[in-house]
Design a protein around this nucleic acid. Structure first.
Lengths: 218, 218, 218, 218
DNA sequence: GATGAATGAGACTTCATTCAT
DNA sequence: TATGAATGAAGTCTCATTCAT
């Protein structure tokens, strides 16, 4: 009556996850349409048929894969604030740093972005979920920070509602740059991050007498 | 001995362009792999075979399409400088405006970006050309502007070399946003543009006594 | 983990052979280029896709087919010598008889010849193999027989090295005749065989006093 | 009213012939089915459409090509007899020599043979014509020679009716050999011809006392 | 007569999906 | 549950043939 010993049972329980991981690699490599289920199967160490035990269609597999690899991307975001007790500008730097490590540096985050751009049109549900679960929280965090900074008198009071997107934009730009150029990206990411923080806080204009403040956060 | 003339000659001359346009629509709609040559043919008002009169393979068609639709995107960029005789900040605003209208608002520009993200891995040559013909000039223009501004004392002198990318980033972010969300984009683009210029010039930090200057360019 | 068994296993084991047989019929009927894989599939009682489970391309299918149908054509040739204990001329007759039944009478042998003539230019590897595995052994057998006959004083000592090919030639000629004329071949094959043996042994010239010897082997 | 000057008129008159020559090369190279009309056109220095001015279909072109290249292959055969006033064996040698030079050595003759083997099944009319215009006359010539030789007492009287084909067979064998192996043919054709004549006249059997006669014709 | 753009049927090949085992 | 042989629809590409010029 019992067919599975411990090992088998564990294998069985892990199968879907292994397939989803394999699917991530395969779809990230060639895109949805150009990826063959056989590629996914080969990467997962199973055969084509096995995929259909867990996923009804290629589309469902893709959707589940995106969901599973999106989940948890922002999981420890709250800790960022808890850890940074400093001024608003310090918190912003910490938050952007968090985004860099989870969107730019983390391959998962980057490829999810690619999926949205490349396949989003045919997976609107996925786009909606991504916006709800990922973009909105991100914007919310930055928005909260900006409002806190304004309230604290650290940030200018005349920031318009879209400022929050503009603040995040360079992060996404860098992610896209890596997506496009891979390892051959021509960007000095350390300097880029510094420039991002610098520009967000101080802008381009020369402001005599305030140089010191700007420098202190370079 | 005599080449065809009149009607036939005109058709012959126009066909490739018509096919290229149809290919743009089709590939933009479904991506490279999922697009059927028959779709392209139908859109162009020809039959499958006709495409092969002008393009050897689906790949070549795609490449030629991207090239033809990339060409000229930055054609009138120089005029931007000629037209704006004001201060560096005015010139920057004008340049960003130009980018918005050619990358964000112009569907061609946006979809080229999608092609780079979605298909770039399999068309490295195209990515290289895009970087050379499109990204590099763009960065060059902004870089020149920044240097001019620094020299004129309008911009801070401590800008690092990556600042130029950070300045442009929000433009690309907005383009990507439209690519992902289509007409359902949740961004107020007018406000976004204003926030972009505002942040680029003034940054987030409150700077008592300089409010007036910032406002004058809102 | 368990391979399919029983019915499925047997089908799996037989499929390639069935396809190869169908391919032989189809290619023999129309030639390589004019044969559609769908014809092969229909003859084999499978669908087009199934062929690709076992053979990567039409070319590979053709090559494998020729190999499988060439194999064993000369398998029982050695028995010919064992069985004929008589004089050299009797052995020659027996050997030629063997060739007639395997090259002329056996459809497989004939069509292989057609493949060499019709498709050999595009399958040089196949031609090389055919020469090595089929022609060379055939020539070797006849050559051995001739040498034996010369040594025994039955055959003339001044035979040149190409004689061996000349001896076999009428066999191939008859095969070709059937290939070209099919069932409408105008040749009386019984008489042709007799004439072949007769000419090979006695030649055309009238040799008074030796008539008896010649007749005894007609 | 007159459109063509001398040159043009001559060109026009030569067109069909040039196309037929090009067709011969193309079809000989790749076979009927695999040859593209465009290949033929390119070789002929015209365009596809031009072929259809002179030939209704690919099939008709092939047929006309075979006819035009078969014609005249045996044109000067009669001269062979006129020129050889010697004994029957000398005449046979001369006739075989003629066949070697027109079937084996002449590329036209060889490739016609290939067409018969490779495409004959789908051009039965062509096979019939080839048999009537080429094979039958050949056989007739040899037959006449054999009968003359028998009558003159030079050849054995008991030759059966198929002997004539056996006598010719080695010629065709050699042609086929060249078709299959091209320039890499492993046959020493000089020796082969000698062996052919030798065997046809003297056969394999040792005939003490007649060696001299045999040698005199080697 | 000559051209070559255009056609469209049809070829080879791929691959998501099914299902007997 | 897992397999992988089998399917067949659909894709890319070819090419004989047509026809306006």
């Amino acid at each position: 009556m019992f067919k599975c010993d411990g090992f088998r049972r564990r294998r069985k329980a892990e199968r879907p996850g292994e397939i989803l991981d394999a699917a991530f690699e395969a779809f990230a490599d060639r895109g949805f349409a150009a990826t063959r289920l056989e590629d996914v199967a080969a990467r997962a160490g199973v055969t084509k048929g096995t995929i259909y035990v867990y996923f009804a269609t290629k589309e469902k597999l893709f959707e589940e894969m995106v969901r599973s690899h999106s989940a948890g991307l922002l999981a420890d975001a709250d800790a960022v604030f808890a850890g940074s007790e400093g001024a608003s500008e310090d918190k912003l730097r910490a938050l952007l740093q968090f985004f860099y490590s989870h969107i730019v540096a983390d391959r998962r985050g980057r490829e999810i972005l690619r999926f949205m751009v490349a396949e989003g049109k045919h997976f609107p549900q996925l786009v909606a979920e991504h916006y709800r679960d990922f973009v909105t929280p991100m914007l919310g965090m930055v928005q909260a920070l900006l409002e806190e900074g304004v309230k604290a008198g650290r940030f200018r009071a005349d920031l318009n509602p879209e400022t929050v997107r503009v603040v995040i934009a360079p992060t996404v730009f860098l992610a896209m740059n890596r997506l496009i150029h891979g390892d051959a990206s021509p960007v000095d990411e350390q300097a880029y991050f510094a420039a991002h923080v610098e520009l967000a806080l101080n802008g381009l204009l020369a402001k005599p007498g305030l140089e010191a403040a700007a420098q202190s956060h370079g």
